[in-house]
Structure formats: C-alpha cells, structure tokens
Write a protein that binds this DNA or RNA. Sequence first.
DNA 1: GTGGTCTAGACCACA
DNA 2: GTGGTCTAGACCACG
Lengths: 116, 116, 116, 116
Amino acid sequence: MIAIDYQSRTPIYVQLVDEIEKCIIKGQLKPDDQMPSIRELANELGINPNTVKKSYAELENKKIIKSVSTKGTFITTKIEEIVQNKIETSIQVIQREVEELKMLGLGFEDIKERIK
Amino acid sequence: MIAIDYQSRTPIYVQLVDEIEKCIIKGQLKPDDQMPSIRELANELGINPNTVKKSYAELENKKIIKSVSTKGTFITTKIEEIVQNKIETSIQVIQREVEELKMLGLGFEDIKERIK
Amino acid sequence: MIAIDYQSRTPIYVQLVDEIEKCIIKGQLKPDDQMPSIRELANELGINPNTVKKSYAELENKKIIKSVSTKGTFITTKIEEIVQNKIETSIQVIQREVEELKMLGLGFEDIKERIK
Amino acid sequence: MIAIDYQSRTPIYVQLVDEIEKCIIKGQLKPDDQMPSIRELANELGINPNTVKKSYAELENKKIIKSVSTKGTFITTKIEEIVQNKIETSIQVIQREVEELKMLGLGFEDIKERIK
DNA sequence: GTGGTCTAGACCACA
DNA sequence: GTGGTCTAGACCACG
C-alpha cells in the first residue's frame, strides 16, 4: 500500500506524507480511522521511527491527521481539501510542462496524442 | 540569459545544467560554439568556479559539451537530441500527473479546460 | 589494500577509482557490500573527503557503486562486467603495442620471449 | 604523417615528440635530414609555435635532433637508441598488462589468441 | 588565459 | 553518523 523509493532524491519523510495522502484520497484510509503507530509503521516499512514521526508531524501540521495522546493518531475529515490541493498542484505541474513543450514547438494536439 | 535561484532546493549546479540545456534548445548556443570559460561564467553568476566546473562535468558526461584543456569548452550535441530527451521526460511527467488526476475522478476534458 | 601514488601524474581520484575496481575484481568487495564512508576512506588514505567523493561519483557514473544519502555507498556491479571491460582495454593496449613492435621488425616470437 | 589528438589527456608537445620519433623509426625522417622550422610545423599542424618549440627542446634533450643556429634543426644519428627505448617501454607496457590479465585468470595462450 | 586537481572547511538535510 | 553542496583559495600544466 505504501511504496518508498530509497534511491529517490526526495526525502523519505516527504514520500511518506505523499503516500499517506494518496491512501486517504483512494479511500484506503477514511476519516476517524486510526493510523498505525509510529513504531508499527516504521517496522513495516523498515525505516527509522524518527522519520515516521517527522511525517506524522507534517501531516498533523496540515491538519490531515490528529494525534490524541495515549489514544493514537486519527485521520481528520479533510479529504476534500487534500483532493483540492492535489488537483491544483498537479494542474500546475502539467501547466508548466505543457508550456515548455509549446516552447519546443509542440502543439496542444501533439501533446494530447502522445499522452493518450 | 541564465537565471539561477539561489534559494531553491535544487542544487545550483543542476539548475545551471538545465539552464544551459535550455540555451541550446533556444538556439542561443549552437554546436561548436565555445562556452563561456569556467571563471567567466562563475563571475557572471556570482558563484564559485568549482560549481560551474561541476555543471560542465555533468554536461560533458551527458555528451552535450566537450572540455578541451587550455582551449575552452565547446558545444557538441545537436539540438534535436536534447529536445527529444526533454520532450520525452516532459511527456512522462504529464502522463503521471494525468493518471493521478484521473484517479481523483477528473476526466481528460476537465483537465484540458483547467489548463487552457 | 588501496595504494595511492601521490607523486603520480594521474590524478588521485582516478587512481582511487582504479584501485577500487581492482578490489572488486579481486573479490575483496562484493555486490551489495557497503563501501567505507567518504570521510572514513579519506582519513585512512590521508586525502580530502572531496577527492574521495569525486572518485565515488565517477564510480557511480560507471554504475559500479550506488550512493544512498544518509545510508552509505554500496557496490552494485557484478564482477564479471568489470572484468570484461578490464580485459578488453588491456587487450587493446597490448594489441597496439605489439603492432608498433612489429613495425620495428620484431616478430611475435621475439616479443613472446622478451616477456617471459 | 603527424597526427595530434587534441582531445587526449597527454599534452600536445608530448604527442608531437612521440610522433616525430615514430617518423624517424619509420625512416620518414633520416639522420642529417633537416626538420621543418618551428613556425612551419606549427602552421601545418595548427598548433602554437611555443608548443612545437617545447617538443623540439625535448627532442634536443634526448639528443634526437640538434638545432644549429641560423641553419636549422637536424636529425642526429641515434635511430638505434630510439628503437631500443621504444622496444623496452613497449615490452614493459605489455608485461604489465599481461600480468594483470593473468591475475584475472587468463592464461598466456588465451591472450595470444585474442591478440592474433 | 584555459581547464584540472586538490585542500580545508563550512553548512545542510536526513536518519 | 551519512552523503551532498558550496566556497575560497591554492597550485599545476598547457598554450
């Protein structure tokens, strides 16, 4: 369910944040679900608990999860925002690439075809 | 002609490589043209010659330029090859993003509209 | 295990690359083995970490090792490939020299004898 | 008759020395022949006169040529020594490579075959 | 002047 | 602790 690329230049903790967000988007993690504990997830992925902790902190910052002491960590109900953010950043990325491709002489139709 | 973002997380030498490739794509640098000397470019950009050297080494690895000791550094690659590479990587990026957007329920038409 | 000639005209970092390749050929370093850390090796050899880094970068370019940030550097290549390369370049060198010797009037038997 | 590789790591003036020695060995330049003037040779090869001068100095050091002021530069009668040197260095190179190949498990016969 | 190498030392993010 | 980046400055051979 969660794939980490240890060779990648993007930090593991960022990848983990992204992957967890994806799980929520996909519906594999639903609002009020309990997240796996830091140690548990760290063991499962074979990474350092500190790294998982950092990811959880990041997610809590973004109000995506909420840690309740002695109880655990839970998903909050923010799916729509995540989706919105995701869409916007994706659109931006595509926009930028499309513009660069246009500078290289490719028309919108060319791009469209090569993608399909 | 060459813009470096000194605050960016992507290393200066990588940005420089990208910028030089762009110059070649734009036709501002043509095959057999002499590149600015390491020191010259370093001065111009306000960065260390070693950093420029690293970029040049990277470009030489990619067979885009050729450094000749005591002579200078010269463009070797034909524009077409770089453009091809650039297009392919861009298409890949777009492809990936489009797929993710589709997973979020957006159709191709929605994406198309938001880009235009 | 690793011998550097600090007086030699061939750069230290090139010598280091060669020596490491030799270690792999000899089987002293096997696939998936962890290389000594940059600082460690630099200390051991009494050279600057940057120089070791340059050698590691070169080896990574040749797909012989793989650096993983915060983890370390690891051997990736199979011995056989390196050996093949080594043999081919050696044969080429010998070939060239033999031909030059033949131009000087030496027969293959003469050469053979002087080598033994 | 004289081939210079501008991409090579070995300095041009060394290459030039080697090439001239080869010419003598081949008999294209004979004892007491007059060498081309520095300027002439520099023009012909498209290299800097200083470089040719350095090569000539090197050759004069090795007693292979002799410059006579206002007269020109002449080949001296040392062919045998040049040949001897050449043979010895070539043999040494081959010797070293053969030993390395043996370390890789190749027998003398294997090497012999691959060369023929 | 050019590119090439090397050192010393600093700072960073990551784990 | 690891690798990664960058600077400042030095020296070299070459042309």
